Simulated assay, not measured.
Amino acid sequence: MSADTPRARITRRGFVAGALLATLGGARAAPALRVATVDWALLETLLAIGVTPVAAAELVLYRQVVVEPPVPASVADIGLRGTPNYEALRLLGPDVIFTSNFSAWAEPKLKLIAPVETLSIYARGVPPFAGAERVALDLGARTGRTAAAAALVADTRSELDRLKARLAGGDGRPLMVINLGDARHFRVFGTDSMFGAVLERLGLANAWTAATRYSATAPMGLEALAQVGEAWIVLIPPVPADAERMLAASAFWQALPAVRAGRVLRLAAIDPFGGLPAALRFARLLTGAMARVKPGGAHG
């Protein structure tokens, strides 16, 4: 057959077309972006949209405090969030490192390893729930998981609406969400915290109406709890061992109206500075705890 016959020309066109398709197919199947992060809120959000980082920080404590989404064993632990192992991170060769304003101090060194992108949920004047949604969508766009990020936002809203309906018809009392610093002091989460934002979305009142700074107040004395005697007390771990012992023997603690009436809810571990997964975890744990309360305040 001549090299210039119609059949030969068709064969050549087919070869060229096949090569082009193969090239385009290869572009679509480009290797996944190798990401790393030193921020837990970003880590949980990445995992929730189906992105497994090559490295993250302080994973032993993450598994105790954040809990979910679970971290695959393939994720390398690069040490403490406050003092990450830069050499180990360099050897892992990430394409991008995601950080937040909480780790801004580390950016100069991180930038020597890979491009750094800062995505912050918690900042003065920024509603944390809206910030968490924005960060989820930004991470989705950056990692090619746009649809998964949009689904995370939609599913979180939908689940919170479902839990709100489940909580409707409660006793109407406000909730005081606190974390014990020691046997005599606590921190309270205000309306501008993630916990406060979730309470609002669940249709629940936050008993603490004084100002906080997008997180929790500085430690204050337990006597302040007497000012919100009609509220539920929601304890967020960890509870220091000495505090646990002293509270059990504390006449003042036992005399608090909420404690005396059995209106104390102890939740499992949650990250107060988490993203959408932490917000949803708090909502589910709180709803489950309230569902187990018998009339009169006692737990079942």
Rank of each mutant, 00 (worst) to 15 (best):
Arg7Val: 03
Arg9Gln: 13
Arg9Met: 11
Gly14Glu: 11
Leu20Phe: 05
Leu20Ile: 15
Ala22Trp: 00
Leu24Asp: 04
Ala29Cys: 07
Ala29Pro: 00
Arg34Met: 09
Thr37Gly: 14
Ala41Glu: 13
Val51Arg: 10
Ala56Ile: 09
Ala56Arg: 03
Tyr62Gly: 13
Arg63His: 12
Ser74Ile: 11
Leu91Glu: 15
Pro94Trp: 04
Val96Leu: 14
Ala104Phe: 02
Pro115Asp: 11
Thr118Cys: 13
Ser120Gln: 10
Ser120Tyr: 05
Pro127Trp: 11
Pro127Ile: 03
Pro128Lys: 03
Ala130Asp: 15
Leu139Ser: 09
Leu139Trp: 02
Arg142Glu: 15
Ala147Asp: 15
Thr156Asn: 06
Thr156Leu: 07
Ser158Thr: 12
Leu160Cys: 07
Leu163Cys: 04
Ala165Phe: 01
Gly172Trp: 00
Met176Leu: 09
Ser193Pro: 03
Ala197Ile: 00
Glu200Cys: 00
Trp208Asp: 03
Trp208Asn: 07
Thr212Glu: 15
Arg213Ser: 14
Ala216Arg: 03
Glu223Asp: 15
Glu223Asn: 10
Trp232Phe: 08
Ala241Lys: 10
Arg245Ile: 13
Ala249Lys: 09
Ala251Phe: 09
Ala251Pro: 13
Trp253Glu: 14
Ala255Pro: 03
Ala255Ser: 15
Leu256Asp: 08
Val264Thr: 12
Leu265Asn: 02
Leu276Asp: 08
Arg281Ala: 14
Leu285Phe: 00
Leu285His: 01
Ala289Asp: 10
Met290Ile: 05
Lys294Trp: 10
Gly296Gln: 10
Gly296Arg: 04
